[in-house]
Design a protein around this nucleic acid. Structure first.
Lengths: 122, 122
DNA sequence: GCTTGAGCTGGAGTGCACTCCAACTCGTAT
DNA sequence: ATACGAGTTGGAGTGCACTCCAGCTCAAGC
């Protein structure tokens, strides 16, 4: 796959893909005869995964660290698991913040509706 | 209340409080005889609220817009309610991303534990 | 009356995560 | 043969949300 195809398939820009490679978040893919990046299919799964880590608030430095552990092979399984467990806790705490705030939004929206009706009736 | 007390009570820094005032997120409080900011208690509630909007991903520009509507009084009730409803939807979508990713973390952690055991037994 | 500490202002600096640019090389279509 | 589009590099620029700084004033304690 060429870089533009990966961009299309993932929603990342071509520039972001090269940037991710530069910082070590994506393994440098092999090149074709013209020197162009030639990605394998498996990169799509990886990009989706780091996208999920991103969307759930993992810092870039940590994603890079995870990527490097992954690239280093089986000896880093424990370290990777520990990172995921830490992130899992971060997600749990975000979930509870979001749930609290969702309840607050519901409450405020109802209050505002009520106030809007009262003002209308003046 | 003086600015350092507000900082202490909210966890924001003194600089951030002044910055929030500069961009219109906090109403300029009255000053004492020496020209120092003299905050009322109600600012704490407001800061906690904007902190929740922040923690749930509302952009600064939108929080400022909400603050300005609030400062403008009752005629903006509808606009504020609509902002909160929009944000409520954003929260719902974040919740589902987080839940999906939490499930994925659980799955991966279990897989990693399994692999660690297998490698240990070699 | 002098030091210390908190607060003040306007403006510069920081860190993160991209995003864009100039100047170049290839491969394909006309 | 040439024009065009997609790709390449190294490096500069952007936007967000703070964070820090210099140089100042003021109030309270010794």
């Amino acid at each position: 796959m060429r870089i533009s195809e990966v961009a299309n398939a993932t929603g990342l820009s071509v520039d972001t893909l090269r940037f991710y490679e530069k910082i070590g978040l994506i393994e440098p893919p092999p090149r074709d005869d013209a020197g162009r990046r030639d990605y394998g299919e498996e990169v799509l799964k990886w990009i989706r995964f780091i996208g999920q880590l991103n969307a759930t608030g993992m810092k870039q430095a940590d994603r890079v660290r995870y990527a490097q552990l992954r690239a280093a092979g089986d000896s880093t399984l424990k370290a990777r698991r520990e990172m995921l467990e830490t992130h899992r806790e971060a997600i749990r705490s975000q979930l509870s913040t979001l749930q609290d705030t969702l309840a607050l939004m519901d409450q405020k929206v109802n209050l505002y509706r009520k106030l809007e009706r009262e003002i209308e009736h003046v």
